[in-house]
Design a protein around this nucleic acid. Structure first.
Lengths: 99, 99
DNA sequence: CGAATACTTAGCGATATTGCTAAGTATATG
DNA sequence: CATATACTTAGCAATATCGCTAAGTATTCG
């Protein structure tokens, strides 16, 4: 394993790790339908806002989503719609395992 | 969020979590080129065999790989080549973030 | 300005993950 | 049978993650 390969794997793992949580997967799916503010997401998810906020900043840190403040609200947008194809495939993986 | 949606997200997150580690990503990539025994993977990765073995059983538990014992060796195979397309897309995600 | 709303950050305890070493299991081999 | 090889399992310490509450920041509104 070269150092380059190692760096690439680490970087890819970082993105996967960011996606690897039910709440964050929900956020990504929801944002794929359009931008949402933190309060909307919080209500849909059903955990405290600080918790949602932390999930959001995690996704933002790896470049999957982006935020924009408008008034007192902060709206988040999906930056990499590619992630959705990704998740579509994922459905196949579990299905193939369950059968 | 319905209970069904919750269960699906949890299941998907489980698969992503299994992939979300540099060593396990390496294993998946390597197995996409053909089956490998634990000792081969161990040598390539450069950590102790028990550690590799645990990464392998994690991947096996979510149905991504499968094992077969032949003599004293255990060979692992990729069960869901779909995962590779998945990872191809991943390259795009990081690239789009870095630029 | 003062209060309210929408968020984020910090800090905490509970739990999960990671890699290690040591010990256990199973198959081949002298 | 005894030893070696290939692997897995168990147990441990270090570290990371998760959700919470409390406290801080920023913008709006009376």
């Amino acid at each position: 394993m070269t150092a380059t390969a190692k760096a690439r794997l680490k970087s890819q793992a970082r993105v996967l790790k960011a996606l690897a949580h039910p709440t964050r997967l929900f956020i990504v799916e929801e944002l794929s339908r359009g931008e949402r503010c933190v309060c909307e997401l919080t209500e849909m998810i059903g955990v405290e806002m600080p918790t949602v906020s932390r999930h959001l900043s995690l996704l933002k840190n790896v470049g999957i989503i982006e935020d924009e403040k408008r008034g007192t609200q902060v709206f988040y947008r999906l930056m990499t719609p590619c992630v959705m194809k990704f998740l579509g495939c994922l459905g196949g993986v579990e299905a193939s395992f369950r059968k």
